[in-house]
Every structure is written in structure tokens, then in C-alpha cells.
Amino acid sequence: METNDKVKKPLALNIISNKVDHKGFGAGSIDLNSVSGMIIDGDQAYIDEGTLHAKSKVEKGIKFSMNKEDVPNGRKCWIVWVAVGRKEEGPYYAGVASCEMLIDTEARRGWKILAEHVNRMDRAMKRKIMLENLDASEKALLKEALIGHNPQWWEHSEDELKLALQ
């Protein structure tokens, strides 16, 4: 008996995988299992699994330019890279870095600097907190989303993150 009910996987921040380290092919390569992306769009902040492949909800169908002038009617959106680490107390938000984008959904045009997104994702994975480009309301949205996703991870997080989101 077949069922047509598709089980939708809940959105979650990835956490360090259970893979056993090895010394063969791919050793030393970047492990993206501990990083996820959150989107801040207007008055919403949410996890979007598509961010790692530039296929988030806001990026789908958008042709990106490196020139802001190409997107005069774009709205500001953010990808916030969140790396989860482990310490004695348990998992925590270890690295967090925000990257700006402009999105004009109607014109299907956008602006972002891909190199900045890659560099900031790398910095988050290296346990850096880089949120200086967010305004107070965006910081409040991000803080609420992080706490809402997992209050224990927030509790275990370093004071640097908590201060950055005040």
C-alpha cells in the first residue's frame, strides 16, 4: 500500500557530522556539516537550507550582479552564516557572520559579492563573530531566531555573540 504523504524534513541547523575522520582522498577538505545559513528578509529571520548552494528562497530565480547600480529597486536581505560547535556543556553557536544582498524579486535581479559571502562563511566556520553590518532591528531578529531555534545552544554560546546582538 503506497502513501502519497511526503514527510517534510524539519529545518534545522546542521551539526557536526558523525563521519569518522580519514586520511585518504578529501582529507583536509572543508567540512560544511557544521555551518548553515539563515536569511533576514524584512521582518523575518529563518533558516534556509538552500543558502549553501545559493538556492535560498530569496535567491531562487535571481540573476546576480556585482554592481549595486544594476538593482536600483532592490530590498536589503542578509545571509547569516551560523557555525555550530561543541564544547563540554554541549553544542553552541560558535561562529556567526552576516552578508548583505539586494534582491528585486519583480525584476529578478540581485546584487551580492560572492567572494565576500565565501570569506564570511569561512570566518564563521573559524568561530568568528562578524555582525557589525547589521542594524539594531536585524540583530534583534537574528537573536530571536537563534534563541527560538535552540535556547540551550544560545545559553552555551560565548558572550561575544550575545554582546554583538544587544
Rank of each mutant, 00 (worst) to 15 (best):
15 I>D: 08
15 I>S: 14
15 I>G: 09
15 I>Q: 15
15 I>P: 04
15 I>R: 13
16 I>Y: 09
16 I>D: 12
16 I>F: 12
17 S>P: 11
17 S>K: 08
17 S>T: 14
18 N>I: 00
18 N>G: 14
18 N>V: 00
18 N>Y: 09
19 K>A: 13
19 K>F: 06
19 K>R: 15
20 V>H: 14
20 V>W: 01
20 V>T: 13
20 V>F: 13
20 V>C: 03
20 V>K: 15
20 V>D: 10
21 D>Y: 11
22 H>V: 02
22 H>A: 03
23 K>L: 14
23 K>H: 11
23 K>M: 11
24 G>Q: 03
24 G>H: 06
24 G>L: 06
25 F>Y: 05
25 F>M: 09
26 G>H: 08
26 G>S: 01
26 G>I: 00
27 A>D: 06
27 A>H: 03
28 G>Y: 01
28 G>L: 07
28 G>N: 00
29 S>F: 10
29 S>L: 12
29 S>E: 14
29 S>C: 11
30 I>H: 08
30 I>T: 13
30 I>A: 14
30 I>P: 02
31 D>R: 05
31 D>H: 13
31 D>V: 01
31 D>E: 08
31 D>A: 10
31 D>S: 14
32 L>S: 09
32 L>Y: 05
32 L>R: 08
33 N>K: 09
33 N>R: 04
33 N>Q: 08
34 S>N: 15
35 V>W: 01
35 V>F: 06
36 S>A: 05
36 S>R: 05
36 S>L: 01
37 G>K: 05
37 G>N: 00
37 G>L: 02
37 G>A: 12
38 M>L: 14
38 M>A: 00
39 I>T: 14
39 I>L: 15
40 I>G: 11
40 I>Y: 06
41 D>P: 06
41 D>N: 14
42 G>R: 05
42 G>Y: 02
43 D>T: 10
43 D>I: 03
43 D>S: 13
43 D>W: 02
43 D>G: 11
44 Q>E: 15
44 Q>F: 11
45 A>W: 07
45 A>H: 07
45 A>M: 09
45 A>G: 10
46 Y>D: 07
46 Y>N: 06
46 Y>S: 08
47 I>M: 04
47 I>F: 10
47 I>E: 07
48 D>Q: 02
48 D>K: 00
49 E>R: 11
50 G>V: 00
50 G>C: 01
51 T>H: 00
51 T>K: 04
52 L>V: 10
52 L>H: 07
53 H>V: 14
53 H>A: 12
53 H>T: 13
53 H>Y: 14
54 A>M: 15
54 A>Y: 15
54 A>V: 04
55 K>R: 06
55 K>W: 03
55 K>G: 06
55 K>F: 05
55 K>C: 05
55 K>V: 02
55 K>M: 10
55 K>L: 09
56 S>F: 05
56 S>D: 04
56 S>E: 08
56 S>P: 03
57 K>Q: 11
57 K>P: 00
57 K>D: 14
57 K>Y: 07
58 V>G: 01
58 V>M: 13
58 V>N: 11
59 E>R: 08
60 K>Y: 09
61 G>L: 00
61 G>F: 06
61 G>I: 01
61 G>Y: 04
62 I>G: 02
63 K>W: 10
63 K>N: 15
64 F>C: 04
64 F>E: 02
64 F>I: 01
65 S>G: 08
65 S>F: 10
